[in-house]
Design a protein around this nucleic acid. Sequence first.
DNA 1: CGATGAAATTGACCGTGGTCAATATTTGGA
DNA 2: TCCAAATATTGACCACGGTCAATTTCATCG
Lengths: 192, 192
Amino acid sequence: MAKAVQQRTLKTRAKLLDAAQAVISESGYEAMRVEEVVLRAGVAKGTFFSHFKDKDALMDQLIGAEIDRHLDGIDALDAPTSIAEMTDAMMPLITFMTCERYVFDVILRHSGAAANADIGPIAMTFGRHAEVVTKWLWDQPFRKDISAELQAEGVQAFMVQAISLIFCSLHNSVAPRERLETYLTAWLMPTA
Amino acid sequence: MAKAVQQRTLKTRAKLLDAAQAVISESGYEAMRVEEVVLRAGVAKGTFFSHFKDKDALMDQLIGAEIDRHLDGIDALDAPTSIAEMTDAMMPLITFMTCERYVFDVILRHSGAAANADIGPIAMTFGRHAEVVTKWLWDQPFRKDISAELQAEGVQAFMVQAISLIFCSLHNSVAPRERLETYLTAWLMPTA
DNA sequence: CGATGAAATTGACCGTGGTCAATATTTGGA
DNA sequence: TCCAAATATTGACCACGGTCAATTTCATCG
């Protein structure tokens, strides 16, 4: 008999999430401290870890939710008809993903789930993103020699690469938008 | 007048590196503890941090050196004449990069340097890897519509993607070698 | 040699994430 | 309404990376 989750539990979790969100709004993701969150939420430290496996799990939820919000916006758009349009459509998401180096690190760490058991919010968003891109590619004037799914995987690979290079001193002279557009043109519209 | 570095310094650094390597050989990278290393090296904890900025910096050196050894092997090879050969040539490197999830995380974190000042060993190896691939691509029967440099950047992006998916429960049914070959064929030999 | 300043080393101490046995609260049944 | 089992909460405690003022060792020069 599945036991119903107590009201108390929901309330405590909400308090923790609110407190965390507040800290992040004020000081950013990297600066978030578990101690600060439990202090504001008015609960003991141990309570935090009975609601979230670890600090990373909370970040997974918060950042995953934020990415999902961006995907909602992207999903509402008409399918882009050019590489430039596609790149533009992804820019708000990319901007968020690069708002802090720490945020991008967390995203990378969670982009693939470690075990079947724990496919977290961020991993889900990667799946969703691939779906959106696949849908976009369905009947576009792009290459036809490979599947839309494979094309979408490539789009993700290049998006990650373009973002990584933002944080790389050796390659940060080119803006991410232009770099991504170059990549995607070469990937989706080869002429040789 | 630049003061020569003391013998003592070199000796201590060597002791620390040896101790770290020993711990890693026995228990792996992830299990390495600074306390254990300084204990074996017979120095105080503070000494460790006067030789390495932090634990990550030591990992950067050790893992970077290991990657360099693999690149030496790759560099000694004849330029591959097919995608399959190219993929095979990169497999030993990929195998090392995926020996532990932690190792891959460290590599990703250091693949782009945070500031011009600290381009570490791992970041250097990425540059070197790109050069090797670019050289390979120079006169190969692959696509000619984009530069060899851009092709090499793509090869790196797909290598990272293929590795990431190894650690992803949603996509670990395909072996990394086959996945990479699929990616590289689509990237380097498009037929549309 | 002995003195003196520079460089290396030390270890007590701190910040922060995470654990767990003890305690408090809730729930469902008699 | 009361009791017992299930569930949630607590906070002292630990692990481990990292800091820094005090101390020791080293190199150079008169």
